[in-house]
Amino acid sequence: MAGDRTVTDEVVDSLRGSADPRLRELLTGLVRHLHAFAREARLTQQEWERAIGFLTATGQACTDTRQEFILLSDVLGLSMLVETINNRQGPGATESTVLGPFHMTESPVRELGANIDLVGGGEPCVVSGRVLSRDGGPLPGAVVDVWQADGNGFYDVQQPGVQPAGNGRGLFTADDEGRFWFRTCVPSPYPIPTDGPVGGLLRATGRHPYRPAHVHFIASAEGHAPVTTHIFVAGSDYLDSDAVFAVKPRLVANFAPVDDPSAARDFGVANPFRHARFDLVLERA
């Protein structure tokens, strides 16, 4: 019969028959760490039951357009840790960061220069740049997947009766020189959803739920490793206290004010506007 100090070994022994060595390795490590935590913290029955209830509620909060478990992973820093372990870019390559919980639907294919802000109301903005290999060469035909919140800090999937599907999203193909550009609104800081179990966890630990202003990107090109990243707005609130720990200094970009009617006409935006320029640099696969 298992005792307090032998149950761990018995569980680990029960995993030895797994035909998948990686699964066996992962479960063995998980069991040992979980059991060590329970012993170290002297976990009570009531605390264990509350934890099970929290995880159950987290699963129940997930829908086709909401992923509460990713949100939980984000606020515990686990998403950022896994991203860092698995994506160590070489010098000059664009740094990766978390996917986030709102890449829940496919971005609509759009032409270069299209406006992804379908509702208006935010400060007009142009985002432009190139997709490059780390050796500096352009990557024609690279695919750039973009998604962001609207000017009020909400994603389309959060407001299905207010925002049209695909608002703030676009799937662009870079031109023959690797260039991409699109019109949008300047993103604003926003709180992650707090009406579920993760919000309760933040309140219980005295943490704020806010993220600094940013635009999400996934860039991919043949022969290169894709990168999942953000571009953060320089000067935004919460750059030093992102609720999901995703800010990296090299991912902060200047959304420069432009007061030039001629440039505004060329881009098809109202004057004045903001213009963010940056490149997405990929590692060879």
Rank of each mutant, 00 (worst) to 15 (best):
282 L>S: 07
212 P>T: 00
4 D>E: 15
20 D>A: 02
35 H>C: 15
217 F>Q: 01
157 V>W: 03
57 A>K: 07
253 A>S: 12
269 V>Y: 10
92 G>F: 04
38 A>G: 07
28 T>A: 04
50 R>A: 13
201 L>E: 03
278 F>R: 05
166 G>L: 06
201 L>P: 01
190 Y>K: 01
26 L>I: 03
89 Q>P: 11
22 R>K: 09
128 S>V: 14
271 N>I: 02
152 N>E: 15
150 D>S: 12
264 A>F: 10
217 F>G: 00
138 P>A: 13
238 Y>M: 03
137 G>M: 12
59 G>M: 11
208 H>T: 13
273 F>M: 07
237 D>S: 14
212 P>D: 03
127 V>M: 05
278 F>S: 05
228 T>W: 03
180 F>D: 03
82 V>C: 11
197 P>K: 00
222 E>H: 10
80 M>Y: 05
277 R>D: 06
117 D>Q: 13
71 L>F: 02
95 E>K: 12
53 G>K: 01
256 A>F: 08
257 P>G: 02
52 I>Q: 13
65 T>N: 08
166 G>I: 08
130 R>N: 10
234 A>I: 02
111 E>W: 00
128 S>W: 04
82 V>P: 00
4 D>Y: 14
161 G>L: 03
84 T>L: 05
133 S>G: 15
203 R>F: 02
112 L>A: 03
22 R>L: 08
164 P>L: 03
162 V>P: 00
50 R>I: 00
17 G>V: 12
16 R>G: 15
65 T>H: 13
255 F>G: 07
49 E>V: 04
17 G>E: 04
271 N>K: 01
66 R>C: 03
174 A>L: 08
50 R>Y: 02
215 V>G: 01
188 S>W: 00
63 T>S: 15
36 A>G: 11
174 A>I: 08
256 A>I: 09
193 P>M: 01
65 T>W: 09
208 H>L: 12
8 T>Y: 05
28 T>S: 05
35 H>A: 15
253 A>I: 06
265 R>W: 05
126 V>E: 06
113 G>W: 01
60 Q>Y: 10
285 A>Q: 12
236 S>A: 04
1 M>R: 15
105 T>R: 15
284 R>Y: 10
168 G>F: 02
87 N>Q: 05
168 G>E: 00
282 L>P: 04
3 G>K: 12
75 V>S: 02
4 D>K: 14
37 F>E: 14
93 A>Q: 03
191 P>E: 00
210 Y>H: 12
213 A>P: 06
45 Q>F: 13
118 L>M: 15
136 G>W: 05
155 Y>F: 15
120 G>Q: 08
132 L>V: 10
218 I>F: 09
103 H>Y: 13
209 P>W: 08
18 S>N: 13
92 G>N: 05
194 T>C: 06
56 T>F: 10
184 T>F: 00
148 Q>F: 05
180 F>P: 02
14 S>N: 08
190 Y>C: 04
47 E>S: 13
199 G>T: 01
65 T>C: 07
213 A>K: 01
158 Q>P: 01
114 A>I: 10
220 S>C: 07
166 G>D: 07
262 S>I: 13
145 D>F: 14
231 I>W: 09
116 I>D: 03
56 T>K: 09
68 E>V: 08
143 V>N: 02
80 M>W: 07
101 P>H: 11
49 E>A: 12
